[in-house]
């Protein structure tokens, strides 16, 4: 099996991460913000897997498992917050929910 060069894998991870970040910053809908976060997390996970493959170690994949678990937990909390926000403000616009300013 021909191995994919590390640079390409990391490049892909970087592109994914940047897409996620841009999505996070430009999207106002909270659900899309959560999705962007997922993309960023997976980009980080991909980087771990690529690095693990480069060194021939299982560590990268193990860390990816941890990231998956963490992402699941984070999404459950995030979705609960989304529900509460919708309940209270009748909108999912994150800019409308800016009551906690100094």
């Amino acid at each position: 099996m021909a191995s994919i060069p590390m640079q390409q894998g990391l490049l892909l991870a970087g592109i994914l991460f940047s897409l996620g970040l841009v999505g996070l910053l430009v999207r106002r809908n909270v659900i899309f913000v959560l999705m962007s976060l997922e993309i960023m997390l997976n980009a980080a996970g991909l980087a771990f897997v690529v690095a693990g493959a480069r060194w021939g170690q299982a560590d990268g994949q193990i860390v990816f498992l941890f990231i998956l678990t963490m992402a699941a937990a984070e999404v459950s909390v995030g979705l609960a917050l989304v529900l509460r926000i919708y309940h209270r403000f009748k909108t999912l616009d994150s800019d409308a929910v800016s009551e906690m300013r100094g």
Binding site: L21, V26, V33, S94, D95, V97, S98, E99, R101, G102
Partner: peptide, 18 residues
């Protein structure tokens, strides 16, 4: 001064962190 940065907008905070 510092109070001005506390806008309550989540995306600003995310951008700040990034």
């Amino acid at each position: 001064g510092v109070r001005k940065t506390e806008t309550g907008r989540m995306r600003w905070y995310a951008a700040g962190i990034a």
